[in-house]
Structures are given as C-alpha cells and as structure tokens.
Amino acid sequence: MSHSYVLLAAGPNVVGLRGSIESWMRGTGAIAGTNFRMLGDSEGSVFVRAEFTCAANRKTLEASWCTVAAQWGLTAWHIQTASTPRTADVAKPRLLVLVSKADHCLRELLALQGKGALPGLIAAAAGNHTDLQHDFEQAGIRSRTSRGRRRPWTAWDMRPRTSSCYSS
C-alpha cells in the first residue's frame, strides 16, 4: 500500500541537489508527485518541498534520507505524511496574503479555502488598512495592519501560533 508524503528541506543552494533528491526518491521506490519545488534566496539558501508516494514507511524514508541530507548539508528537513485530512492541511504550502483597501479576489480566496479547494493554506494576512481585517477574523485567520506602527510588519510578526519545526 502506498502512502503520500511531503519532504520539506532547507540548506545551501548547490548544483546537483535536485538530481540527488530525485535519485533518492527512485532508490526508495517513490513516485514523485506534481508538486516538486525548489526556491532559492539571495543568500545562497534553498528551500525544497517535494510531494511523493511510496510503499515504505516514514521511519525507513527518514533513515535513508539522512545520508542525502548530510551529503548536501541540508540542516533542516522533515518528512511528513499527507494521507490523513488533519495532516493534509499541514502538508499544503502556508500562504501569507497581502491585502490593500479593496477586496479584489479576497472573498474568492476565502471561499476556496473554506471548500478545501485552495492549493495552499492561508496562514495569515497583512496590510496597511483595517478595512478587510474583519473578513479574516471571521474566517479564523490572523491579520495585522501597519496603521499606527513605526515599523512595517515582518515575517517574524506573522509566525504561526503553534511551533512548527522542520528540523530532525
């Protein structure tokens, strides 16, 4: 029986990493899903999110992944199951929605999330007006505005309510 997994990893952005990850997946008998993303930043770091299915259990995958992570210097990583509804939401990419004074597509995004049809999970919202704050609060989404603040909001201010560490 195959299980769905999501690999989350972070480390230095080096040539050949994607090929090594794909090779590891083939070696474990995994089948890569449609969502395999690598995002590099200006400081030379890379963030990996790969969905895949595999018959192996998570502990076996984690044990074999340790070698690849050590080889490429991936200091933060986590393999999570995405087979149950509770963890399926955790496996979705977390989204920060930036809003202006007008609602544009906001109501559609909130409706899609309510139906479970949004390919991500709106974790927080930020903007420079309070006009739409009520919509987010009604949906149970944290929101912040920069009105009256001396400095703009940062990602640290928007950290999740519960700790979520992807290190092993």
Results as ranks from 00 to 15, higher is better:
residue 136 F to I: 02
residue 8 L to R: 14
residue 121 L to D: 00
residue 37 R to A: 08
residue 112 L to A: 14
residue 7 L to P: 05
residue 51 E to H: 12
residue 141 I to K: 04
residue 97 V to K: 06
residue 5 Y to S: 07
residue 62 E to G: 05
residue 9 A to I: 01
residue 11 G to D: 03
residue 107 R to H: 12
residue 124 A to G: 05
residue 141 I to Y: 01
residue 95 L to I: 04
residue 51 E to S: 12
residue 68 V to S: 07
residue 168 S to H: 15
residue 101 K to E: 04
residue 40 G to M: 05
residue 8 L to Y: 08
residue 9 A to R: 03
residue 150 R to K: 12
residue 51 E to Q: 10
residue 55 A to R: 08
residue 79 I to L: 10
residue 23 S to N: 13
residue 29 G to W: 00
residue 73 G to I: 02
residue 74 L to N: 01
residue 4 S to Y: 07
residue 123 A to K: 00
residue 88 A to R: 14
residue 15 V to G: 08
residue 148 G to T: 00
residue 133 Q to V: 12
residue 149 R to F: 09
residue 127 G to F: 06
residue 69 A to E: 03
residue 93 P to M: 00
residue 1 M to Y: 03
residue 156 W to S: 15
residue 28 T to N: 14
residue 25 M to W: 07
residue 76 A to W: 11
residue 1 M to V: 05
residue 116 G to K: 03
residue 57 N to D: 15
residue 162 T to Y: 13
residue 137 E to N: 13
residue 51 E to Y: 08
residue 154 T to C: 13
residue 14 V to R: 13
residue 49 R to I: 09
residue 145 T to W: 01
residue 81 T to Q: 13
residue 9 A to Q: 05
residue 3 H to A: 13
residue 131 D to Y: 10
residue 163 S to C: 11
residue 37 R to G: 05
residue 120 G to V: 03
residue 97 V to D: 08
residue 2 S to D: 10
residue 92 K to C: 00
residue 23 S to K: 13
residue 23 S to F: 10
residue 151 R to C: 07
residue 36 F to D: 10
residue 35 N to S: 12
residue 87 T to M: 08
residue 76 A to F: 10
residue 95 L to T: 01
residue 58 R to K: 14
residue 33 G to Y: 00
residue 9 A to S: 07
residue 101 K to V: 08
residue 136 F to G: 04
residue 157 D to R: 01
residue 14 V to I: 12
residue 136 F to W: 05
residue 143 S to C: 15
residue 22 E to I: 10
residue 92 K to W: 00
residue 166 Y to D: 06
residue 96 L to R: 02
residue 113 Q to S: 01
residue 105 C to V: 02
residue 118 L to S: 04
residue 149 R to H: 11
residue 107 R to F: 09
residue 94 R to Q: 05
residue 44 G to Y: 05
residue 154 T to M: 10
residue 24 W to H: 09
residue 34 T to Y: 02
residue 33 G to I: 02
residue 162 T to E: 15
residue 47 F to D: 09
